[in-house]
């Protein structure tokens, strides 16, 4: 030792209690396991939506939120169920359906173009008026909004169970969509930062 100060420090260090290395290693390992478990439960940057309604205004709101979220870099999943399925229809097929399913098919609209508004629809006049008012304000039409959402990569899933109940076949729905059940929704919803029921 050339320096008293260093000698003093050396003594101070040597007098420190030795850490229990095995215990520390064990604690670090426990923490690593916990961090990994937490990381696997972290939500994705995702939005999950149930579109239950077949009202034009509500479906429109759903597509606006979906496009906005997708444009903000979020993954978006939309699950269409019950009346919401009518927004995805592109044609009507009756062959091979039960009487009730046929009736249901005839009485429900085919596609966004035929949807009514939730209030003041007056046999479709309300929906036409809303479309005209949107045009006046430079708001894209619902069909354009839906196409935009799809172009932005929004995942669209039709509920298999309500399709079966209502007698809607996949061929009657627009092309390029998926079919799934409640677990498909929950699989995305549990990893989402936001979930909406519309």
């Amino acid at each position: 030792m050339t320096n008293g100060q260093v000698a003093l420090n050396d003594r101070a260090v040597s007098e420190m209690p030795l850490p229990d290395l095995a215990r520390l290693q064990e604690q670090i390992q426990q923490l690593q396991t916990q961090v990994e478990a937490m990381r696997s439960q972290m939500p994705d940057n995702r939005l999950a939506m149930v579109v239950f309604s077949g009202d034009l205004d509500r479906v429109l709101a759903a597509f606006v939120i979906a496009s906005g979220a997708a444009a903000s870099g979020m993954e978006v999943s939309m699950f269409f169920t019950f009346w919401g399925l009518t927004a995805l229809r592109q044609k009507r097929q009756s062959a091979g359906k039960t009487l009730f399913q046929k009736l249901m098919g005839w009485m429900t609209p085919v596609g966004l173009r035929r949807l009514g508004v939730s209030k003041m629809n007056f046999g479709g006049i309300g929906a036409k008026m809303l479309r005209a008012m949107m045009k006046q304000q430079g708001v894209p039409q619902p069909e354009e909004m839906a196409q935009m959402a799809r172009d932005l990569g929004v995942r669209i899933v039709a509920c298999q169970m309500s399709m079966d109940v209502m007698g809607i076949r996949k061929e009657e729905l627009i092309d390029g969509i998926e079919v799934g059940g409640v677990a498909t929704f929950l699989g995305d919803a549990t990893r989402s930062k936001a979930t909406l029921f519309i």
């Binding site: 606006v64 496009s67 906005g68 444009a71 903000s72 304000q137 430079g138 708001v139 894209p140 935009m148 932005l152």
Partner: peptide, 9 residues
């Protein structure tokens, strides 16, 4: 002249 959500889209 464009409305929500077009500016961000």
């Amino acid at each position: 002249g464009l409305q929500c959500p077009m500016p961000i889209v």
